[in-house]
Nucleic acid binder design. Structure first.
Length: 556
RNA sequence: CGGGGUGUAGCUCAGCCUGGUUAGAGCGCCCGUUUUGGGGGCGGGAGGCCGUCGGUUCGAAUCCGACCACCCCGACCA
């Protein structure tokens, strides 16, 4: 395949858009791969679409290899289907109506639709099934950001499995995990699978695929010894032990006027911040005020507390705090609070300083179990300095992009939609499902984040828009065109820069676009029948006879 | 939704505070020229509802108000 730059719609930019922060955002826009239409809404220009399609093809091949069947489900979806599963109230759903007022949604995933169709499965003989499609997803994200990193419309490959039972689901799940490993490997993307937050909606086992990146929305926590990896929201780092002061037989009140922060408290009392406790009152969805208690040097991880409580939580307001504790924030503690207390595991042993629930007063020597009866759970946010829960090694924290997510949903959708089959024993049973998502656009962005230099993108060959970028300089036009045709005839995707222009700008564009191999043909080539080749990752040309270019390409 | 910021040429930005010729620069684009291998030089040219609406004023890119859009931080993210 041969493309001529002189005819391509390839608007490259010398300057990055002023409002771009993420490297992938800057380089993909500068390189003419993508353009913004509106907040979180992007067009893939011809070059960007080529990369996207190459990623899509890799995903397709690996899905087919595990027995997946490609299909296509619509974007326009009747709202009733979503009302039956209780998902139509999710704030990210786009709603619309037709001219008669019939309501539709633009789906963020296709569980409802696929389960609707899966109702045609009648017998265990038709199971298992793996069905997938590449389709546009819409999500009314409150805050899109970072180019392709977080968008309101994108193409996702979503696959769905249906099985007779949990054992079957487990097999389908492992098949997908294997396929995902191969997909990322073939794309040349470094990815870490992690145990993910299962989410509010029926998730059991789930794996998130996090690509370490200069920008991103997730934080990947890994052990320096490679035996632990988790998303920050569920990571279970081991905090350093506190330096405890002398033990007390009972809590002792101390007047702490105008001391409302942990640092001020620790300084005032001359104790380790880790030997204090921090009270974080939250409100659950049914309006209960719950006290989350973590060590003074820790932060509350709300996602963990929500998981422990089985309810979404929000921070309590000052008025709610005064009503429930009879004191101002800064002096709150577990003793004397009538509501439920969830204490972090790190507070199980030892005596801590806590608020006295009287404004301006604290208690020393407060001991869980003896002085108050909390429920214990891991609710602290892991942080730098924590030790690995497996080997005690140091934990690393990296920003990352979530490029894929697979999970088991069991009968979460088959039950409300009444999708059943008749099993071998003659009994009608619910289909057991799993869903498996992967975002080609995010893979593309993550690749740029991981593989670039100061001059532009360095695409892995498997997903590069073209294998070779032929730079035709003045005097070498004819030979450049001939070389390009020859490479194309051998099956390479070739971009021929046949524009009228100077060498410098052509080289700069070639670096920016990041094709794996560059071939420079100038007027010297007319005399010596040789060209300069270099791989994008290298910074030196090699001069080789034109007749050797195909061989060189095959070796690089 | 809370906080902060920005809207002037295709892109990056001056000008606004202190209102007043025809609104500027660099890059890009078009024409010409230059022996043209890392965004070169010279000459000429095209390109603007100064985000929108309203107000103040003899006069508004500039001052005031509302709205819209976009970006960043946070909340949110089955």
């Amino acid at each position: 395949m041969l493309a001529r730059a002189s005819q391509l719609f390839l608007p490259t930019l010398r300057d990055a858009p002023a409002d771009a922060e993420a490297v992938s955002h800057k380089l993909l826009v500068r390189g003419g791969f993508i353009r913004q239409l509106s907040a979180g809404v992007w067009t893939f220009l011809p070059l960007g679409w080529r990369v996207h399609q190459k990623i899509v093809q890799i995903i397709r091949e690996e899905m087919d290899a595990i027995g997946g069947q490609e299909m296509l489900m619509p974007v326009l979806t009747p709202a009733e289907l979503w009302e039956q599963t209780g998902r139509s109230d999710i704030p990210e759903i786009f709603h619309l109506e037709d001219r008669t007022g019939r309501r539709f949604v633009l789906p963020m995933t296709h569980e409802e639709t696929i389960t609707f169709h899966a109702k045609e499965i009648q017998s265990y003989r038709q199971l298992p099934q793996i069905l997938y499609h590449f389709a546009v997803k819409n999500r009314d994200e409150p805050r899109p950001r970072g180019g392709l990193l977080r968008v309101r419309e994108f193409i996702m490959k979503d696959a769905y499995s249906f099985d007779r039972d949990d054992e079957g689901l487990d097999i389908s799940f492992r098949k997908h995990a294997g396929a995902y490993d191969r997909i990322f490997e073939r794309c040349g993307l470094e990815v870490q699978p992690v145990q993910a937050e299962s989410g509010m909606m029926g998730g059991k086992e789930s794996i998130d695929y996090l690509a370490p990146s200069g920008s991103g929305e997730n934080t990947l926590v890994t052990c320096e010894h490679g035996d632990y990896a988790a998303d920050l929201e569920v990571a279970h780092g081991i905090p350093r032990p506190p330096e405890f002061p002398a033990q007390l037989a009972a809590p002792a009140e101390i007047h702490t006027p105008d001391v409302t922060t942990i640092d001020a408290l620790a300084a005032f009392l001359g104790v380790d911040t880790a030997a204090t406790s921090k009270a974080m009152p939250v409100v659950t969805s049914d309006g209960t005020v719950v006290l989350g208690l973590v060590r003074g040097d820790d932060r509350l991880e709300e996602a963990k507390l929500a998981a422990a409580l089985g309810s979404a939580v929000r921070p309590a307001t000052v008025d709610e705090i005064r009503a429930a504790f009879g004191a101002d924030p800064g002096s709150l503690g577990p003793i004397g609070f009538a509501g439920p207390v969830v204490a972090d595991e790190s507070l199980r042993e030892g005596q801590f300083v806590a608020g006295a629930n009287t404004t301006g007063w604290h208690l020393r020597g407060v001991e869980a179990g003896r002085d108050f009866a909390p429920r214990f759970a891991d609710i602290r946010e892991s942080k730098d300095g924590d030790a690995c829960p497996n080997c005690g090694g140091r934990l690393r924290f990296q920003t990352a992009i979530e490029v894929g997510h697979i999970f088991k949903f069991g009968s979460r959708y088959s039950e409300p939609l009444d999708a059943t089959f008749v099993d071998e024993d003659g009994q009608e049973k619910l289909l057991i499902g799993g869903s498996y998502g992967i975002g080609p656009g995010r893979i593309m962005a993550a690749l740029v984040e991981q593989r670039h230099d100061e001059n532009g993108i360095v695409w892995p060959a498997a997903v590069a828009p073209y294998h070779a970028h032929i730079v035709g300089l003045a005097g070498g036009e004819e030979i450049a065109a001939g070389t390009a045709s020859e490479l194309a005839a051998y099956g390479f995707d070739v971009l021929l820069d046949d524009r009228v222009g100077r060498a410098g700008e052509k080289f700069a564009d070639a670096d920016l676009l990041g094709c794996p191999v560059r071939v420079t043909v100038g007027k010297k080539s007319v005399e010596d029948n040789a060209v300069d080749v270099r791989s994008r990752a290298a910074d030196e040309d090699t001069r080789i006879p034109i007749t050797d270019v195909v061989t060189w390409m095959e070796e690089h």
